[in-house]
């Protein structure tokens, strides 16, 4: 069981990082961030289980979910504004600030 969960954590991290590195759509990038934080929440649960403190692990995971929801909300709000001001969600267009 634990092994499956650990594999799940690694899988989610891998997908999330792939998204950050490759994907260009800002909404998708926020989703990739969500996958990463979900991986972290899952990791908390696994860690709680491994160390024999299941309650602790679950409460940490809940806290993580609360925090990352706020981040997602702010991120999506920014995405809305970006769409409005830039007319696109392509993050390649968001590179006026460089050098």
């Amino acid at each position: 069981m634990t092994t499956v969960l650990v594999v799940g954590v690694f899988g989610l991290v891998a997908i999330g990082l792939y998204g950050l590195l490759i994907v260009r759509n800002l909404i998708k990038i926020v989703i990739a961030l969500q996958l990463l934080t979900k991986a972290a929440a899952l990791a908390m649960v696994v860690a709680g289980q491994v160390s024999g403190q299941v309650n602790l692990g679950q409460s940490l995971a809940l806290t993580v979910i609360v925090a990352d929801t706020i981040v997602a909300v702010v991120g999506l709000a920014l995405a809305v504004q970006v769409r409005r001001r830039f007319g696109t969600l392509d993050v390649r267009q968001l590179s006026t600030q460089k050098r």
């Binding site: 991986a39 709680g48 990352d68 991120g75």
Partner: peptide
């Protein structure tokens, strides 16, 4: 936001490892 959130996830993974 994106870069900070990524960093934050790394911290969480580290905490899970420590726990």
């Amino acid at each position: 936001l994106v870069q900070s959130a990524t960093g934050s996830v790394f911290v969480l993974l580290a905490i899970a490892l420590v726990l």
